[in-house]
Nucleic acid binder design. Structure first.
Lengths: 199, 199
DNA sequence: TTTACAAACTACAGCCTATAGGCAATTCGA
DNA sequence: TCGAATTGCCTATAGGCTGTAGTTTGTAAA
């Protein structure tokens, strides 16, 4: 009787593929066991359980995304870097919807620090440094960018843009342009709402 | 033997409360049955099943949010309306995290048209009309605002801002200010990247 | 009071996670 | 090289979930 040769890495890889093919909720230990032609209980020799698997899958996806950024960003700054950063995210979410969903998983602070999330955050911060903001404003700007990217991708994937024209891709560019504009004209804390006439 | 008196409305209300107390995944027909001291099968007399319950809960939450907007928006325009719209969303998500989660549920186009989602979208559109954009650009701007709000709220709820300073609330105001700025300086399609020096 | 509908019930099937304990394939030490 | 320890995968089982079928019982209308 042959051994199927389960390992944590192969299980996580298979979970990522399964998530992309059938959605994150389809990632179950039972489905994974079927894929390896093994009994569900066998998986517990390699993983702590379903939660553990999903944590590992999230970390795996974040690492892949960080790798994509490492390819896309070098040599770029300012608007070019902004677009490359955002496009890398959206492209990854489009190519790997299940992994993207997995990466949204809330994870413990320690796990977050260990994961590639920190690398990604630092990339975003580095992009902002090209816009001449104060350190505090860089944080806010990173959060603006992160919010817009995550929100846009989530709404697009959820079909939120399907019933209005134009298609989402057109808006994507315009949204990033708008963010670029706001970064170039960043409102300082003490000089907000330059025109109260529309309040 | 008394009848518990289940109705669709009471079940949806209870599901919303359960979601806020224990998270959306805790919303199960079994948990709901326990809450009404009834057998799980009894619920099928009033609902089509779990999917149906979650759809109804999403619609319920969207309606509550639309009501909050109807209270918050009248008499406001421009930056004031922008902040009121965004704050209503974030306040609702904070006060009712489970319902907010439920409202993120992907829903059929017909259900979306029937739900309060359309009302909310029209509110956003109306706010944009105060910024003097072209109709096309209004759509893009609505999508920017929606993405930023959804993304920020999701990241905040997921703890994404917990391990950097300053606290999320500070960034919230600055992010909205930045969006207001970009709406006042909206980049036209043919006059983008006015300063290529940072590309 | 009888009847009939509707709201609950019991019973069950199927899928999921997870634990306990057993057997066998591989690996390691002598 | 051979026996023993380890580890990978097994069976068995418990318990939670959704959903269906068929049955009883409350209640309101005839």
């Amino acid at each position: 009787m042959k051994r199927p040769g389960l390992t944590e890495a192969r299980l996580v890889q298979a979970a990522a593929e399964l998530a992309d093919e059938s959605g994150l909720p389809a990632v179950t230990l039972s489905a994974l066991a079927r894929r390896f032609d093994v009994r569900p209980a066998s998986i517990y020799s390699h993983l702590g359980g379903l939660d553990d698997l999903l944590d590992l899958t999230a970390a795996f996806a974040l690492q892949e995304l960080a790798n994509a950024l490492a390819e896309a960003l070098p040599g770029k700054a300012g608007r070019g870097a902004l677009f490359a950063f955002a496009d890398a995210h959206r492209d990854y979410a489009t190519a790997h919807p299940g992994r993207w969903q997995a990466a949204q998983r809330r994870v413990s602070p320690e796990a977050a620090a260990r994961s590639a999330g920190g690398v990604i955050a630092r990339s975003a911060r580095a992009i902002m440094s090209g816009y001449g903001l104060t350190p505090d404003d860089e944080v806010h700007a990173v959060r603006l960018l992160g919010s817009a990217i995550n929100g846009f991708v989530a709404l697009e994937a959820g079909g939120g843009f399907d019933h209005s024209v134009p298609p989402a891709t057109v808006s994507w560019t315009r949204v990033l342009d708008a963010i670029d504009t706001s970064l170039r004209n960043w409102p300082t804390a003490d000089a907000r709402h330059p025109d109260r006439s529309t309040d």
